[in-house]
Design a protein around this nucleic acid. Structure first.
Lengths: 224, 224
DNA sequence: ATACTCATGTGAAATGCTTCACAATTTATA
DNA sequence: TATAAATTGTGAAGCATTTCACATGAGTAT
């Protein structure tokens, strides 16, 4: 088959597949540090609590990266996965809202590690505007649109209160930014073509709560 | 059918259904504040970008809460959903690791709103131990196990570096805590019966990145 | 060489999830 | 009271995702 990693592929890759690729990427980085030359779908599956066939199927959507009898070359596969995910480059990210969550995200190591560079900060609080966070001066949110454009920002993280999130996002959209990661607990409206993902931390606590109350055990992990 | 909310129900509720219940809960709270008496599956679906049948099917797993011709009574449905999710009560939560993320979570409003009360904090840093965060004195992580037990903690949020997360979790497990929300970028090992959910913030950025690079548009939203 | 083992890649089968379509029930209206 | 409109609850159909199973190829040992 041999699909040029994620460009021509037109078979609707599912959201879960993409999420699993993220997980593979992290595990491959780890395996690389542990000096593994190759890794089998079995080993990868074990580490991620998946089935080996799932791993193979996921990867096979994008090409054929392994060697029969041997497995996948770790470094190479990692490079391929990072290319598929589009993280084989740097993304210029702006963060709006320097509150509790926002401040935490500025120094969040995993973002940088994967090429997400927060290069602009915005807030509406006069006490914060002009202050320095990890080397970045906080801008006035009034200039959001123009500064996003002037600085060629490609992604925006929204970490403002629910009440103002939509206004912010309207501006972000006007600045032609096509990707938004939203931490505010609201459903944002954006025109088609703009991607929004919501980070909803209480959801996972709720899942735990549900699981406890209902004795809900995770799906049994099979063999191959 | 009439299943006594989530106790006898044995039909394997999918993870997505639970996550959607979380979303319904949030929207129902909003509708309540907007003084809606009732809401139709159509309206709920519109707000969540789902199909009305999806909404009805999700709810019908747990009983029959609506009235034909009218819709669902908002307040009542909200109460039912919160019971299903197990958030019609207070959960005693401990937070381990008062770093960037940890500090942000201590004051995270959405947790409290939904009954997740962070009542204990732990860290290993002498400068932090004994200090006061939002009225809670930070405990020494050395006493993790005993204090979790003495204080009847039911859930633990892990916000420590990847390198130490597993050690923390081993202790948490010894303290008989059955629910863990993990922010550390590692796959934790726990015995069966212990629930772990991972909060993986870079995953959503990666999804955005993938979507941008591949022109991946969200699945078309249908009507009913 | 030959046989044996390991492990990928992939159609086909199995399973799971979502949407359809409609009977049933309620409210509103004349 | 009859008719029309709204909307639920749910089997069945339609799709999507996961798992199975096996042909195929690579490495290893004798």
């Amino acid at each position: 088959m041999d699909i040029p990693s994620g460009v021509t592929a037109r078979k609707r890759i599912s959201e879960s597949t993409i999420h699993r690729l993220s997980r593979y990427f992290r595990t491959l980085s780890l395996l690389e540090r542990e000096n593994f030359e190759t890794v089998s779908s079995k080993e990868l599956a074990k580490r991620e609590k998946l089935t080996p066939s799932q791993v193979r199927k996921d990867l096979s959507f994008f090409g054929s990266f392994g060697t029969r009898g041997l497995g996948y070359p770790v470094a190479e596969l990692k490079a391929k996965v990072s290319k598929i995910l589009g993280i084989d480059r740097v993304w210029r990210v702006a963060l709006v809202g320097i509150g509790n969550i926002g401040s935490a995200l500025v120094s969040y190591k995993e973002f940088i590690k994967q090429g997400f560079h927060i290069v602009k900060l915005f807030d509406n609080d006069q006490r914060k505007i002009g202050s320095n966070h990890k080397g970045i001066i906080v801008s006035d949110i009034k200039n959001l649109r123009t500064e996003l454009q002037d600085d060629h920002i490609e992604m925006v993280i929204v970490a403002v209160p629910a009440t103002v999130a939509q206004y912010i996002v309207d501006d972000v959209v006007k600045a032609e930014v096509k990707a938004i990661l939203n931490f505010a607990p609201v459903n944002l409206k954006v025109p088609s073509g703009v991607h929004v993902r919501n980070e909803n931390m209480e959801m996972e606590l709720e899942y735990l709560s549900f699981a406890m109350v209902n004795n809900h055990s995770p799906k049994g992990v099979g063999k191959d």
